[in-house]
Every structure is written in structure tokens, then in C-alpha cells.
């Protein structure tokens, strides 16, 4: 197989006496969707915060595109092309889609905002994801549905030339049709060559969209599987701790 886009080896993180990540290994590939599953408290959020540079890991090796890197702060992560879409999306409802997608990275000419250039780039980014659900890129976000908002947040990562996009529970709180929309979007993101890590509690979504599934259990990586080689019951077993890779029930 190719070089992984991101490869974590022996990652450790503790908060005081609590070891949250106990030396885990994890890989994700460009153009593939890797699902990260695990029960509450398994360490998913800590892993994501480490990858985004918000809470750097204590120990372990991170390789990005084969190169060893240090993710000491969010800036370094985003310079590498790692973008996180958090569950709350962090959109400004009073601004329109273009303004939100460019927030913090506006294009200016002679000190003034270049709306035309931004509108063009935002439209192109959304088109690359075959977005059809949005009426106008100048619509205010307040007028968008939950799925459409997720679209804007994901589109923003494309605009930033992300190589690795981490999605935190993108389908939580969405209806059936909108979940479908977002999962399609996730798939297209990967088809465009971007590495995608998706965190989800919804195993139906995971099996539909993911190429690989990695299961965290109490701070350890208990299984990293290709979706095609596993099934629903096994994954549930890994998540709840009744099953481990060696096959021994605990």
C-alpha cells in the first residue's frame, strides 16, 4: 500500500494522572475515508485535538506524507493542510456562504475586500464537491438547513487546500435526507484525493462511507480494519470491549 497520509506511532497523552491515550498507532490514507469510532471517553476527541495541534501529544511519532512532523499548535497543523470541522461548525449566521468560507483568510486588493475573487473561488470549491443543495453562494447562513451548513463548513476546508480533513460527528442532529447528502459530500471529498477522518457514533453511517474503521477502547487502539473485511457486530464488540483483535473476550 502507498505511504499513509498520516501515520501515528506510539502516541501518548495524559492529563495529570489520567492516561487518555496509551500509546496508540493510527493511519489514514489520501483519497480514503477512515472512521474513528469508540465509546464516550475512549479518547477520540483527545486524538483529534492532538492532530489539530490544539492539545499537542505528550509522546509518540507523527508522520505526515512520510515526513516526521511536530503538531505543536493549530497553525502548524493547518500549514500542513490538516483541517478540522467541529461539531458546532463555527459559522457566523449573519454572514453569507462566501464570507463564512473565507472568514479569517479574506482576499484583499489595495486594502479592501475583493468580493469578486472570493465569490469565484468559493463557487469553484463548492462545485468541486458537486454541491447542488445551495441556492446561492450569497445566501446568509441563517437561512440554511443543518446539512447545508455542514456543506459550507466542509467546503471551507476545500478552499483552504486541506490534505487531511477531520470531521467530528458530521451527521449528528441531521435528518435522513440530509445525512445522505453529507455522507455523499464526505465521499466526494475523498474522491478528490483528500484524506478524510470521520468521527461518528452512527455505525450505519460509518459502514456506508468509510474505507477503514479504527476502534478506540479506553485509550488504546483495539482494531484497525478495512470496512470490507468486517461487520457490524464485530465493530460493536470492539467498541464495547467484549472483543479484541486476538479474539479473546475480556
Amino acid at each position: 500500500m502507498d505511504t499513509p497520509l498520516i501515520e501515528l506511532t506510539g502516541i501518548k497523552k495524559s492529563f495529570g494522572p489520567v492516561d487518555v491515550l496509551k500509546g496508540i498507532d493510527f493511519t489514514a490514507y489520501a483519497g480514503k475515508v477512515t472512521a474513528l469510532v469508540g465509546d464516550n471517553g475512549a479518547g477520540k476527541s483527545t486524538l483529534i485535538k492532538g492532530l489539530s495541534g490544539v492539545q499537542p501529544f505528550d509522546d509518540g511519532v507523527v508522520r505526515f506524507d512520510g515526513q516526521e512532523v511536530h503538531l505543536a499548535n493549530p497553525k502548524q497543523a493547518s500549514n500542513l493542510g490538516i483541517e478540522v470541522v467541529y461539531q458546532d461548525l463555527a459559522l457566523c449566521e449573519n454572514l453569507d456562504i462566501v464570507q463564512n468560507m473565507f472568514l479569517g483568510r479574506e482576499e484583499t486588493t489595495t486594502g479592501t475586500l475583493n468580493e469578486a475573487a472570493m465569490e469565484f473561488a468559493a463557487t469553484k470549491a463548492l462545485q468541486s464537491l458537486s454541491v447542488r443543495t445551495v441556492k446561492s453562494v450569497r445566501q446568509k447562513v441563517s437561512s440554511l438547513s443543518g446539512g447545508q451548513r455542514q456543506t459550507v463548513a466542509i467546503g471551507r476546508t476545500v478552499l483552504r487546500n486541506a490534505k487531511l480533513v477531520i470531521l467530528d460527528e458530521p451527521t449528528a442532529a441531521l435528518g435522513v435526507a440530509q445525512t445522505e447528502q453529507v455522507l455523499n459530500l464526505v465521499r466526494r471529498l475523498a474522491d478528490n484525493g483528500i484524506g478524510v477522518i470521520i468521527i461518528s457514533h452512527n455505525l450505519a453511517d460509518v459502514f456506508q462511507v468509510a474505507d477503514y474503521i479504527s476502534v478506540l477502547y479506553l485509550g488504546g487502539m483495539v482494531a484497525s480494519l478495512a470496512t470490507a473485511d468486517t461487520n457490524y457486530n464485530d465493530v460493536v464488540g470492539y467498541i464495547t470491549g467484549t472483543k479484541s483483535l486476538e479474539g479473546a473476550a475480556s
Binding site: Y86, L91, C92, E93, N94, G104, R105
Partner: peptide, 13 residues
């Protein structure tokens, strides 16, 4: 406008 609409989003941007 961004900070008025959602300060947290502004901070993260």
C-alpha cells in the same frame, strides 16, 4: 460583523 454574529467562530478563524 463576524464577531457580532459568532465570536467563537471568529476566534477559531
Amino acid at each position: 460583523y463576524a464577531v457580532g454574529g459568532n465570536p467563537e467562530a471568529g476566534r477559531r478563524a
